[in-house]
Design a protein around this nucleic acid. Structure first.
Length: 291
DNA sequence: AATAGGCTCAACCGCCAGGGT
DNA sequence: GACCCTGGCGGTTGAGCCTAT
C-alpha cells in the first residue's frame, strides 16, 4: 500500500490559480490566518476546491505580503552565487538571506539564468588564469635558455589537418629542450578524425575544463596522438588514454615541467583511433615537437 | 505568417523530518 | 517504539511566451 495522498485528487482543482481563487485565499488568511493547518484550510474557504499543499504554496510564493517580484539585482546575484558556492542548493536557506524572495523564485532564477552566468564567468577566469600561468612558465623557461621560440597560438579550426600533417613523438622529459611549448586554442567546434594511431602519445593537452559539466568531460576521449585530461571526483586530474586506460595524475596543472615529469612512463602507449569533438572555447595547451 | 525550438516560472511531485498520539 | 499527519524542501514538469528562421 502506498502513501495516502494529502487530499482527494479527484475533487480538487489543479493548475494555474484564477484571480478569484487568489482573492478567496488571500482574504481568508488575512482575516483568520492559516489556523496552523494547511491541509484543513481549503475546506473552510467557501468555493475553493484546492489541495492544502497547493494553498500553502500559492500563499508563500505569490500571495503573502512583502514579496518582491521582478528582476534580481546585482547584489542579490552576488549573494545567491556566494551562498550556492558555500552551501549548495539549499534554497530555503538562501531565500532567508534575501527578504522578499522565495526559495522557488531563487531556484528558478538560478536554474535558468544565474547558473549560466556563473559558469561563463568561471570559464573566463579559468582561461585567463591558465594563460597567465602558461606564459609565465614559458617566460621562465625562455630565460633559462630551454626554449627559444616565442608563444605561438595555433588555431586548430583554421588548420584542421594540423595534427595529421606532422609526426610527433613524445618528448622524453630529458629532451624537453627540443620541444616548443605552444598554446593551442580551439576557438570553434572542431573534430579531429582518423588520426594515425601508430605514434605513441606525443601531444600533451591541458584542457581548461572546470567550467564544463562532468558528463560532457566524460564524453571526451583521447584522439590519436592526444591525451585528454579529466577531472576526478576528488579534485585531482587524470589523463585518459582511451582504451589503454593508462593515466597520469598531476596536482599542479599550471606547471608545465611537472606535467612533463608526470607524463613520463606513459609515452609508450599506442593510442587507439578515435574521433573526438572539441567544444567551443575549450582551451588546450600542447607540447609538440617541431624539429 | 508560420513554425520550431528555447526559455521562463508557476505548480506539482515525492521524500523526509518532526511532532503528536 | 510505532504509526500517522503535516509542513517543508528540492527536483521536475509543462503550459505559455518569446525569438529566430
Amino acid at each position: 500500500m502506498g502513501r495516502a495522498p494529502c487530499c482527494d485528487k479527484a475533487n480538487v482543482k489543479r493548475g494555474p490559480w484564477s484571480p478569484e481563487e487568489d482573492s478567496k485565499l488571500k482574504s481568508y488568511i488575512q482575516q483568520y490566518g492559516t489556523g496552523g493547518n494547511w491541509i484543513a484550510l481549503p475546506s473552510k474557504i467557501v468555493g475553493l476546491k484546492r489541495c492544502g499543499k497547493s494553498c500553502r504554496l500559492r500563499w508563500l510564493n505569490y500571495l503573502r505580503p512583502n514579496l518582491k517580484h521582478g528582476s534580481f539585482s546585482e547584489e542579490e546575484d552576488n549573494i545567491i552565487c556566494s551562498l550556492y558556492v558555500n552551501i549548495g542548493s539549499r534554497w530555503s536557506v538562501i531565500a532567508a538571506q534575501l527578504p522578499g524572495r522565495t526559495d522557488n523564485d531563487i531556484k528558478n532564477y538560478w536554474n535558468t539564468k544565474l547558473k549560466k552566468k556563473l559558469l561563463t564567468k568561471q570559464k573566463k577566469d579559468q582561461q585567463s588564469q591558465t594563460r597567465r600561468a602558461f606564459r609565465l612558465n614559458q617566460e621562465i623557461k625562455r630565460e633559462n635558455g630551454n626554449l627559444v621560440l616565442p608563444n605561438e597560438v595555433i588555431n586548430i579550426s583554421q588548420t584542421p589537418n594540423y595534427l595529421q600533417t606532422e609526426h610527433y613523438s613524445f618528448p622524453n622529459p630529458s629532451f624537453i629542450q627540443n620541444y616548443n611549448l605552444k598554446e593551442i586554442e580551439f576557438s570553434d567546434n572542431h573534430q579531429l578524425q582518423g588520426i594515425n594511431s601508430q605514434y605513441p602519445c606525443d601531444i600533451y593537452f591541458q584542457q581548461d575544463q572546470l567550467s564544463y559539466d562532468p558528463s560532457t568531460i566524460n564524453n571526451i576521449n583521447s584522439a590519436g596522438l592526444a591525451y585528454v585530461n579529466h577531472q576526478q571526483t576528488d579534485g585531482s586530474m587524470k589523463i585518459d588514454s582511451g582504451a589503454n586506460s593508462t593515466f597520469i595524475e598531476s596536482s599542479n596543472w599550471g606547471d608545465i615541467s611537472s606535467l612533463v615529469s608526470d607524463y613520463e612512463g606513459c609515452h609508450q602507449q599506442t593510442m587507439i583511433q578515435e574521433d573526438v569533438t572539441f567544444d567551443e572555447s575549450m582551451l588546450f595547451y600542447g607540447m609538440v615537437q617541431t624539429q
